[in-house]
Design a protein around this nucleic acid. Sequence first.
RNA 1: GCGGAAGUGGCGGAACGGUAUACGCACUGGUCUUAGGAACCAGCCCCGAAAGGGUUAAGGGUUCAAAUCCCUUCUUCCGCACCA
Length: 843
Amino acid sequence: MENYNHVATENKWQKKFKEKKTFLTTKDNSKKKFYCLEMFPYPSGNIHMGHVRNYTLGDVIANFKRLNGFNVLHPMGWDAFGLPAENAAIQNKLHPKDWTLKNIDQMKKQLKKLGLSIDWDREISTCDENYYKQQQVLFGVLFKKGLIYKKESYVNWDPIDNTVLANEQVIDGKGWRSGAIVEKKKLNQWFLKITQFSDQLLESLNNLEGWPEKVKLMQKNWIGKSEGCEIIFISDFNNVSIKIFTTRPDTIFGASFIAIAPDHPFTENLKDDQKFQTFKKEALKNISNESSFQQNEKLGFKTKFSVFHPFTKKKLPIFVANFVLMDYGSGAIFGCPAHDQRDLDFAKKYNLEIIPVVTSEKSKEINIIDKAFTEDGYAINSEFLNNLSTIEAKNKIIEEFEKNKIGTRKISYRLKDWGISRQRYWGCPIPIIYREDGKTILLEKNLPIKLPLDVDFNKAGNPLENHPSWKHTTCPETGMKAIRETDTLDTFFDSSWYFLRFCSPHEQNLPFAQDEINYWMPVDQYIGGVEHAILHLLYSRFFTLALQDDYKIKSAEPFKNLFTQGMVCHPTYKTNDGKWIFPNQVLGEGKNLFLANGEKVIQGDSQAMSKSKKNVVDPEEIIKIYGSDAMRWFILSDSPPDRDIQWSENGIQGSFKYIQKIWRTSELVKSYKQEKNDTNNNYDDEINILIEQISTCIQKFHINVAIAKLYTFLNKINEQIELKIVKSEKILESYKNYLIIISVFIPFIANECWEKLTGKDNLSAQNWPKISTLIKKQETCNVVIQINGKKRAIVNVMNDEEESQIFSKSLAINNIKVILDGKTIKNKIFVKNKILNIVTNEN
RNA sequence: GCGGAAGUGGCGGAACGGUAUACGCACUGGUCUUAGGAACCAGCCCCGAAAGGGUUAAGGGUUCAAAUCCCUUCUUCCGCACCA
C-alpha cells in the first residue's frame, strides 16, 4: 500500500480550490446566508499558533454551515496600520508600507497552506487607499453628526525623541528607545463621543443572546453605569464651589474630607505652590495606565482650603488625591472613611475623623477600626436620616439636596469618550485642515487624503509633522493657506467597520453597498480572541449604532453570535538588558538558558502568543513535517476552544498517525466485501448516534469532543471491516459520511480520499449526512444502585422496569447485602432507567 | 488594585446535579517484520492478592446525591482605554 503523501496532496488541493473557485461567494437570495467572520490579523510577519487556532475554528464553522446548505461568506483581511510597522521602519530602514505589504504577502501564503475556505477575492487591507478613502468618508459622516470633537488630553511624551509613546513603549516609566523619563503632556486631540451611546450600548447587551455571558458582563462593567447624585460644596476660597459625584449620598454626615483630581480646575489656585507642582507631576505619571494607577499608594496633598458641609456647616479639608480621576464623575469626591475602604486608609494616613453613619441593625453603635462597613444598613449619626434604610436614606437626602438646590440626582458612567488621535505616521490620515482664518475644515471631496510616502524616520517626532509639503496646503474651497491635521486615526477606528466593508469590498463610491449589507449583515458568527472582549467589540457596536440611520443598517448590533476563543500561551524570554527573544533561539535547559552567542536568557511568565513579545511558534515547521491537516486536527483536538492553552507539541504525532490511518482505512473500504452472514444489526444505529453527537458538538463549539467522537467513528469502521459482517454498501455509505464530516476539519485528506473512492472531486458539493434511519431504542438498560449516594452496584434491567423490582434485584447482590446489614432503610430515591439511591439511617 | 475566567491521572482533556477519568498523547509488555520512530493486541489514577474501597487545587456548606451549586483560601491566564 502506498503511503499518504501530505505534501503532494495538500499542494494539489490548494491549486484545485483556487482553480475551481470553490470558496467564492456571491449574493444568492434563494439561499439562507451565513456570515462567518474571524477577527482579522495584524500583519506582523508570520502567523503563529494563536492565528491557526482562530482561523481553523472559524473554518470548521464555515465548512459546516456550507455543507448544511447555507450561502457562506467567509472573508479575510488585514488590520494593516499600526505601530510595529513604524518600529520596523526605524530599526530596519524599511518603509512601513513595504514592510506591511511584505508581511501580508507572507502571511497570506501561510494562511493558504492551511486550506481555509476563505473567499480571497474579498481580501481587504486597512492601509489600502480604497479602504481608508471610505474610512475618511465615515469620519466625515460622524463629524457632521457632531460625534467627533477635540479636547485636551494627556499623552506619554518622550523628551529626547520628541515623540508620543504608546503605553507599551513606556517601560518602568522610561522611553523604550531613549531611556528618557517619560512625561505627561497635554495635547489637543480628536475624540469620538461614544459616551452619548452609553445607555444604548448597555441596554442592548440584553438582546445579545448569542454572546457569552462573561463578555457581556465585562462590557457592562466597563460601561459602569452608576446611579447617585452630584452635590455642590462651597469652599472658603472666594466661595468657589466644587461639584462632587457620589453613589452614597446617604453617608454625607460621615464626610470628613474632600478629594479632587490633580488636574481639577480648582488646583489653579495652587499653581504657585512648588510642593503641589511636584505632587501633581508624580500623580499624573500613571494617569493613562489604570493598573499601575490603582496599585499606587493612595496619596493626598493637603491644601490650605476647606469646604463647608452642606448640613452641619463643619469645615472639611480639601485634599488633592492621586486616586481621583478628572475623567470620572466630576473629578471630585467627598471622603467618608467609615464606609469606604479607600477613604478609611486615607483618613488614617492623614489623621482625619472617622464618623460611622451606617450600621447593620437599627440604632446599633458601630466602631470602625481597620475595615470600612461598605454594606447597606440603617443610618445613624445622620440627623434627619437616622433609622432610614440605605435606599430610603439615599432617596431622602437627594430630595433634600434638590429642595435646597445644592445637589441633583445623576447617573454617571465609567465609560470615557474614545480618543482617536495618534501622533504617528502609519495610520489613516484625518480629513481635516486648519485654515489661516482659524477655521477647522472637514475635507469631503477628492478623498482619500493620501499618506505621503516620502517620509523621514531619522528625524525625531511625527514624520507627518516634519513633512512641509504635505503639512502645508491650501483650502480647496477658498484657496486660503491651511495646515493639515497631522494626527492619524487609532487603528481601532479601522477595525470598527471592516465587517461591513467585507459585504462589498470593491465598492468604489460608498463605504458599503446597501443591498449587500442588507443581505449579509449581521455577522452570524464572529470568532476571536477573548482579549478583544471589551474595546474592539464595544467600538464596533458603537460604529454600527452610530451609522445605523445614515446607512440604513438593519441590525443595530453587528455580531449576532460571538465566540471568544482562549489564548495560546507560551513562556516569554528576555536577555538581561530586556530584549525579547524568540523561543527557538533559546538554548539550554531549566534555569540555565542562553543564546547561541552565550548571552544569558531569562525565562518569563507564560503569556498569550504575540509578536511584540516574540513568544510565538511559527506553524510552518510543523506543516513541513506533518502537514496542515495534522496541525489543524491537533489544534482542534487538543483543548476546548474557549480555554487558554499552554502551547506544546506533545500529541502532534498522534494527529499525524490519525491522518495516516484515514488513508489506510480508505484503501480497506475500497476493497471491502462482506464475507460472513451474521449481519451486525446495530451498526447503523451506532453510526447515526455518532453523526448526531458530532453535529451537536460542532454547534456548541465542543470541537475537541467532536474529534474524540471521530476517533471512535474511525475505530468502529475499522473494527467492522475486520469482522466482515456488515454489508459492503453500509460500510461504504458510512465511510463516505465520515469523509464529509472530517472535510470540515481536515479538508485535504478528506477531498483526496473522496476522490480516490468515488472517482469525483466533488466532496465540497455534498450535503452534511442526515440521520437515515430512526435509532432503535435499546431493550434493556443499566441502573446504578447507590447507597447514600455512593455507587455500590449496577443492575441490567428491562427498560422502564419498576422501582420495587429493581430494589429486590439489588438486595440479591452480595455487596449490597453486606453494606445494608444492620442498617435501617429510611428512604429510596428512584430515577427511571437510571438510578436507585437507598438512603439509610447512618453513613 | 479593579473586572473577567480556569483548576479533574505523567500530559491534553470527557462527564443534562445522578456509573468520575470517555477520546487522545506519553509510557510498559507482547505480536508481526531484514528493520521499526510503522501497524496490531494488551496494560496504564491511588490502596488492595482479591472482593472491594478511596480519589476531581485546599477547606467548609447546600442536597437523597456535588467535578458540577454556594462561601473562604491558593495558583494560573485575559482585560484595564496609545500593542492589536
